[in-house]
Design a protein around this nucleic acid. Structure first.
Lengths: 134, 134
DNA sequence: CTGACTGCAAACGTTTTGCACGGTA
DNA sequence: TACCGTGCAAAACGTTTGCAGTCAG
């Protein structure tokens, strides 16, 4: 289990049991939406409130400690910030997987074809995962 | 001005002045969010309601006549469905442009590296447009 | 003429805010 | 101790629904 305590401190976020639980859940699940996160934490913290979840996720988003992933036809999910990667979403079971792809040539092409100074790229694939296509 | 009347009929949507205005606005602006669409149409239809906007956009989405584009850190925008393309978003002025890119090799790479049967791809670039970077 | 569409108002789900209490540093 | 975080309740949003009147086909 990775210790995120120091990371919370580095970002000037006080280390509370709720925050540690949120970070652990993000780490374990990889990607999770607000409602699932709330219900997961309810078992450990029966009195936790949605307001606490929102306040903390927003605080972590502001520190770029956590990132939001917007998914076509589904609720946004949150993940711990990591190196650039793309996402695969299963249309049947809604599972989300990370995938590392070489987007350099696509960024290159977009740079040549547009007049934008590009800074970020978001790539989300939708399809059917192996289990669901059996 | 392209005539979308027949297209509305083809999709079994009655041709009302509000619908024609919505389609024209989507055509003219390229991409627009619900609120901007509502305020644009207010000048022509002072008594138009948000409910009408939502009902129509949802009807058009169901017919795959209009598509939703989810944008990082911004409201979703809607566009008339066209051939596969990617989007460029300006972080300063929020302008959105279409860009046609060759995503075949990226899809190919994702297919090889994953166990998903891929069906769709969404690519959104964020950056600064030429005017805003002056 | 009939079913579909519009606009209003109310309902609903999600997210944010204010405040008193409690916990971290 | 001083501040920050939590949890509750209320408020603020964005979106959907029900309904009566109107319009397109």
């Amino acid at each position: 289990m990775i210790d995120y305590t120091q990371l919370l401190k580095d970002y000037n976020l006080k280390v509370t049991p709720q925050r540690v639980a949120i970070v652990n859940e993000l780490h374990n699940k990889g990607h999770i939406n607000i409602d699932d996160l709330f219900h997961s934490l309810k078992s450990t913290f029966p009195s936790i409130s949605l307001a606490t979840i929102y306040k903390n996720i927003n605080a972590m988003l502001e520190k770029f400690f956590v990132a939001e992933v917007k998914i076509p036809n589904a609720k946004s999910v949150y993940e711990l910030t990591k190196e650039l990667h793309s996402h695969l979403v299963c249309k049947k079971c809604n599972k989300i997987e990370d995938i590392s792809l070489n987007t350099a040539s696509l960024i290159n092409e977009a740079t040549k074809k547009s007049n934008f100074k590009l800074e970020d790229i978001s790539v989300v694939f939708s399809g059917v995962c192996q289990e669901c296509s059996k």
